[in-house]
Design a protein around this nucleic acid. Structure first.
Length: 280
DNA sequence: GACCAGGTATTGC
DNA sequence: GCAATACATGGT
């Protein structure tokens, strides 16, 4: 492992545990790769490396300065505290389920991903499986992203994807999602939608704005809010969450509260990766 | 070779 | 409004 920058070691609140395995392999991001002893991925045009073995109470990473890593892993947030908050609004069997989900997910952190990358990644995710989502994202990076070094590429800019057009994107085998990606790129490049304005809006208003993009509905908009805009209350409801609501709560929808997005990720992780034992 | 995949837009009642 | 259906492609 060749590392050009010094290790960054950041303190986590309440002696939180950081699990790279759970954080990078829970379906929230599609461009981090598992190596023998680490997880690696491109963030802000640099390669970030996180050793699998992490010390309790800290985050150790390589490749960028403290600010970038602190922001990406949201190191100011106490997941110990959030866990307590989530449980406080449930009782009985519901509480036991959330306790179990939080326990198996211990160490998972919701990443503060790049807004534009999250938007395109989750547009690609619709009616798609995770291995193919990763492949599609990888392909657009290799074809249209800035080359950082050998076989390392940045996520392509909105301008680059717009310039690629239908012809270019169709070569990436994105299927019906090509037109959705182009509409997103158009709205960003034209300024019709801008990240800074979304950031100022309430979560509900930001969601409505995101849904003006062709191909962005409730679920994708919620993913962008949660993973790309740091809105921990946003709850993406996909087929797995619908199944969980019916199976355990005997309801079609469940209010997961102020930290619903994180509760959702815990439940999703428990059901899909632990109970159903799905890989990837 | 079906059936399905971290959905959404469109259509039909 | 709300339940079907098409959508591109390839993983399982």
């Amino acid at each position: 492992m060749i590392l050009t920058k010094d290790a960054v070691k950041l303190t986590l609140p309440d002696s939180d545990v950081f699990s790279p395995d759970k954080s990078f392999n829970c379906g929230q991001c599609f461009r981090f790769e598992q190596k023998a002893d680490s997880w690696q991925g491109v963030v802000k045009n640099t390669l970030l490396v996180f050793p699998k073995n992490q010390e309790k109470g800290f985050v150790t990473g390589f490749g960028a300065d403290e600010g970038v890593i602190a922001n990406f892993l949201d190191t100011k947030t106490s997941y110990t505290e959030i866990g307590k908050n989530i449980l406080s609004s449930f009782s009985g069997a519901d509480r036991e389920l959330l306790e179990k989900a939080a326990l198996v997910s211990q160490g998972m952190r919701i990443l503060r991903q790049d807004f534009w990358e999250a938007l395109i990644s989750f547009i690609i995710s619709q009616n798609n499986n995770i291995p193919r989502i990763k492949k599609n994202v990888q392909t657009i990076c290799e074809k249209f992203g800035e080359r950082i070094s050998d076989s390392l590429y940045a996520f392509p800019t909105p301008e680059a994807l717009l310039f690629a057009g239908k012809t270019g994107l169709d070569e990436c085998r994105l299927g019906f999602r090509t037109k959705y990606i182009l509409d997103a790129a158009e709205k960003i490049v034209s300024g019709e939608i801008c990240e800074e304005e979304l950031f100022e809006k309430s979560t509900e208003e930001a969601k409505q704005t995101l849904k003006t993009i062709h191909g962005v509905g409730e679920k994708v908009a919620s993913c962008v809010l949660l993973y790309g805009l740091g809105r921990h209350s946003a709850v993406p409801v996909d087929v797995w969450m619908k199944k969980i609501f019916r199976k355990y709560f005997n309801k079609d929808t469940v209010d997961l509260g102020e930290w619903g997005g994180i509760a959702q990720q815990y439940l999703f992780f428990l059901e899909r990766f632990i109970i159903e034992g799905k890989k990837v």
